[in-house]
């Protein structure tokens, strides 16, 4: 070394060791998380795989005849539930996010509202169940219907949709908005033609993740009384229903071992619904990142 400066003591080896140690610690946590998840999946699959069949999807639950039990009512209940929840929460959530980010003046009131939406996202789901019970079932008289359940789940996931959509809108650079305004565009023309097309993929990702959270929720549905033994498929939004998480919960509650296995099979079906939804969300995000050409 020709250049010697005694004011520095680099201790390169020491610094690199700390770096290696930290990388190792983080990698171990990844392994641990994947391991736990793997054990969980394998134990569930081990319990339930024997019962997985098309009959399992097409049969109604049965207490007397567990060998012929299935998840048809729960499966259709969940499909109804998630469809209605999406129909209610997606337009409201996206519109609220667009208003908050594109239209509302950035004042104290807007900040206060945004802070409270963030807080609502952290409220335990059972609290939404109590609210749904009080408002939709008792006050609006909707009964223990799919609609009441969907409205309750919509309340639960609205804050998540609004926050995710708002972030997607915030990721659109202002230079695009200014370019549009500079051409004599109104605010809606700007939002419609430039901001939304750029933000929709991010919004969709948030929406799908929020919906898959609603898919797995049991607590608020138990609260509004969906915890019932039902052997028919809902025909309309005002029919009573049951849902996959509820059916799984019911089976686990039974003392007989065979019901534990049925619960495992139910979990596999639920996972089978969740995974494609999440895969679509990840796919949209990847596609969006490839397409995002501005910086």
């Amino acid at each position: 070394m020709t250049l010697v400066n005694t004011n520095f003591e680099p201790r390169l080896a020491h610094r690199r060791r700390i770096g290696w140690f930290f990388a190792f610690a983080c990698a171990s946590m990844v392994v641990l998380a994947v391991f736990v998840l793997g054990v969980l999946l394998i134990s569930v699959a081990d319990q339930g795989w024997r019962w997985l069949s098309l009959d399992f999807l097409d049969n109604f639950p049965s207490r007397l005849n567990p060998e012929k039990a299935g998840v048809k009512s729960a499966l259709f209940g969940t499909l109804w539930l998630i469809g209605l929840t999406a129909a209610v929460s997606v337009p409201i959530g996206m519109a609220a996010a667009i208003y908050l980010h594109e239209y509302a003046a950035k004042g104290k009131l807007t900040r206060f509202i945004e802070l409270n939406i963030a807080n609502l996202a952290g409220v335990p789901s059972i609290v939404y169940g109590i609210l749904g019970l009080a408002v939709f079932i008792r006050l609006c008289g909707l009964g223990r219907s799919v609609l009441a359940g969907a409205l309750t789940l919509s309340l639960l996931i609205l804050p998540v949709i609004i926050i995710a959509s708002r972030e997607a809108l915030a990721a659109v650079p202002d230079s695009i908005r200014l370019a549009a305004f500079g051409l004599g565009a109104t605010r809606w023309q700007t939002v419609r033609s430039h901001v939304l097309p750029a933000a929709i993929p991010g919004m969709m990702t948030g929406v799908i993740l929020a919906l898959s959270r609603a898919l797995g929720e049991a607590a608020p549905l138990i609260m509004i009384g969906a915890l019932t033994f039902i052997t028919f498929v809902p025909e309309g939004p005002l029919d009573t229903f049951t849902a996959m998480p509820i059916q799984i919960y019911n089976w686990i509650d039974e003392p007989d071992l065979i019901f534990q296995e049925l619960a495992g099979a139910g979990i596999l079906v639920l996972l089978g619904m969740l995974l494609p939804m999440n895969a679509v969300a990840v796919g949209i995000r990847a596609w969006h990142q490839r397409r995002k050409a501005w910086s």
């Binding site: 230079s175 370019a179 305004f181 500079g182 004599g184 565009a185 430039h194 750029a198």
Partner: peptide, 19 residues
């Protein structure tokens, strides 16, 4: 302002074409 901006156009510091 919307009508005005059609008559008085603007070119910005950084090129900002639409995607």
């Amino acid at each position: 302002a919307v009508d005005l901006r059609r008559r008085i156009g603007m070119v910005f510091q950084k090129p900002n074409p639409f995607p």
